[in-house]
């Protein structure tokens, strides 16, 4: 039985009768770390807030274990949430912040103190316990917010873009820590982010959402290597996958500037190719370099071939210059094919 099960969630927003969630279903196994990713407004935060009980779904069911919790108030759902803005209580010290959920649950003071100390040690914030939130840095505040969630020892952790207010270096450092911590505690976690690197590195499974619908729900590797829809294909990966309009003629798929043999259905309307799979070669389709983005470890090369602009990735610094002629020869095995609805089309074996 899944630890968390969302079934057919629908959420209307009164403003403009806009559907925030169209039909969201998601099962999360016990101890699993699931990332919800997608562009702003895709419904990922709304999904999390409905699960927390901070908002009500207009239709659909929410299960924690085998209990339907639609009508259970948020504080009785055994769920802790870490917010984007940390949501610390500014008038309380760190210790008071962390012990607040225990105090509200009438946990005895000595036990509460012990649990706060344990969590503080785990998060390396033992020296901050007597400070107030405004005296802490962003990273420290986020640790305190984590601590406040941990002391409750909840069944499920929810994270709503917890790192998006921090600088890049700290984000990378903390995302490792959070993932390790949650695994160490053996708890189930749902993690909302718009940062694909966080989703890829932290999660056991990634749910990609778009316009109130879960577009794909799979392991990071599957999501990346075999994207379920053209949207997912374009959303994950940096630089983005090259997506080209395509048509099928007999046994050939034509997606200018490419054409390759195809043994699958003739419903292919889009073809995608990841920048790293678009290798440079001595022979093949001729292209002109129109832009270079050297990043050190790799360079993103923008080329134009037959009026089509493509991005490809090469290791280190490229030896090419803008205006150079190059050749492209991608392997047909690397092409991703999608039909007119954007759904993945597989080649027949």
């Amino acid at each position: 039985m899944p630890e968390v099960s969302l079934q057919g969630l629908v959420k209307k927003f009164t403003l403009g009768n806009h559907l925030a969630l169209k039909d969201v279903s998601l099962d999360v196994e016990a101890g699993e770390f699931v990332a919800l990713v997608g562009p702003s407004g895709c419904g990922k935060s709304t999904t999390l807030r409905i699960l927390a009980g901070l908002e009500e779904a207009d239709a659909g069911d929410i299960f924690l274990g085998d209990v339907r919790v639609n009508d259970v108030p948020p504080d009785q759902r055994d769920i802790a949430m870490v917010f984007q803005g940390y949501a610390l209580y500014p008038t309380m010290t760190v210790r008071e912040n962390m012990s607040f959920p225990l105090r509200m649950r009438k946990v005895k003071a000595p036990e509460a103190e012990e649990r706060v100390d344990t969590a503080a040690t785990l998060l390396k914030i033992g020296n901050l316990l007597d400070r107030r939130p405004h005296q802490l840095s962003g990273g420290e505040r986020q640790r305190v917010a984590m601590g406040r969630a941990i002391v409750r020892n909840p069944r499920v952790f929810l994270f709503d873009e917890p790192l998006s207010n921090l600088d890049a270096a700290l984000r990378t450092e903390l995302r490792v820590e959070i993932a390790e911590l949650v695994r160490k505690l053996g708890r189930t976690a749902l993690y909302v982010t718009h940062d694909q690197a966080e989703a890829m590195t932290m999660a056991d499974r990634i749910a990609v959402m778009h316009q109130g619908v879960v577009q794909s729900y799979a392991s990071p590797r599957d999501t990346y290597e075999r994207p379920a829809t053209a949207f997912v294909a374009g959303f994950l990966g940096n630089p983005r996958m090259n997506l080209l309009d395509a048509s099928v003629q007999g046994r050939m798929v034509r997606a200018s500037p490419f054409a390759f043999e195809w043994s699958g259905a003739d419903t292919v309307r889009k073809v995608g190719l990841r920048p790293e799979e678009l290798g440079l070669a001595d022979r093949g389709i001729e292209a002109k370099v129109i832009g270079l983005e050297p990043l050190g470890a790799e360079t993103h090369v923008r080329v134009e071939a037959n009026g089509q602009i493509l991005v490809l990735r090469v290791r280190g610094f490229a030896k090419h210059r803008v205006g150079d002629k190059v050749h492209l020869s991608p392997s047909p095995a690397h092409f991703h094919a999608f039909d007119e609805n954007g759904d993945r089309v597989e080649e027949r074996a």
């Binding site: 901070l54 504080d75 949430m81 803005g85 949501a87 209580y89 509200m104």
Partner: peptide, 18 residues
């Protein structure tokens, strides 16, 4: 007062009076 703070208190088990 940020909405998040009040919501966090709700999740922490604080009723309206608390």
């Amino acid at each position: 007062i940020p909405n998040e703070v009040v919501e966090a208190a709700r999740l922490d088990g604080a009723g309206a009076l608390s």
